[in-house]
Nucleic acid binder design. Structure first.
Lengths: 134, 134
DNA sequence: TCGACTGTATTAGTATAACTAATACAGTCT
DNA sequence: AGACTGTATTAGTTATACTAATACAGTCGA
């Protein structure tokens, strides 16, 4: 699993790491049971502080994406969000509402946006998706 | 045009304002030529500092959404992003890639996501959309 | 022409968040 | 038992967001 940071991004480093992990899981580049690079190893690779990696792994654990075992490592659960269905639906709505608004601002048509979404969805490994807790 | 702040959002206030303006434009709640609330008026309404509103309007101006006229006010151009086509396409790809990844994490199917996007797109006023600079 | 608005600019300050550095402890695995 | 792993804590720096105050310059309508 490759994790890169975008130095030009305004997004906090720990959030970029967390997103990269979710992206690897979603695209099939990583799977349930995989062990993430250790805190120190990833910190060295990215030339950042280990505490920053810890923050990313903490966030992922809070969202149910990973489980950390002291002394053993940090593992992908393969599980999705543990939020209730209503909360997840609300997050999805908000997510796509923002994306649609931003796409409108960028000057794209509704069909442009649908096509772009299809391309993004094709990259994802829905066959191996673990559904969220009902 | 209604602008509300979400106190629970981690998003900076000035970005919430900028997004609200883009959203009003996209949904037809506001149109080219409309004047935004003045810096002081919006600051009073939202109980924030006028400089924070200035920051939002500056960001919108940089993106081509508004034009500010000293003494006269701040007006919606109705124009979209002024980025080159390649830049806009890249932003769209990135936008939807992130949305798709997050939706996957939330446990939704590809069809769930398409439907949710359709709902969001239906809210937008594509008939009145001003295309971005070619 | 003047008053009440508008945007613009600047300086100074506070609070918070992100990240860093260092150190040490406890668990795991080979 | 050694080399790894995660976990915790304290302390510090930097950057960002927001605030407060003040003053200047432009617009518009009466």
């Amino acid at each position: 699993m490759q994790i890169h940071l975008d130095p030009r991004s305004a997004e906090p480093i720990f959030e970029q790491i967390a997103y990269a992990v979710k992206s690897a899981l979603a695209t099939g580049a990583a799977a349930e049971g995989d062990r993430l690079p250790s805190v120190r190893e990833l910190a060295r690779e990215l030339a950042i502080n280990p505490n920053t990696v810890v923050r990313a792994y903490e966030a992922l654990e809070r969202e149910g994406v990973v489980v950390r075992r002291q002394g053993a490592g940090c593992f992908l659960t393969g599980r999705g969000s543990e939020l209730a269905a209503a909360g997840r639906r609300r997050q999805l709505q908000e997510l796509l509402r923002r994306a649609a608004t931003e796409a409108f601002h960028l000057g794209f048509s509704a069909d442009d946006v649908r096509r772009a979404l299809d391309q993004s969805l094709e990259r994802l490994d829905f066959d191996r998706q673990r559904k969220a807790t009902p």
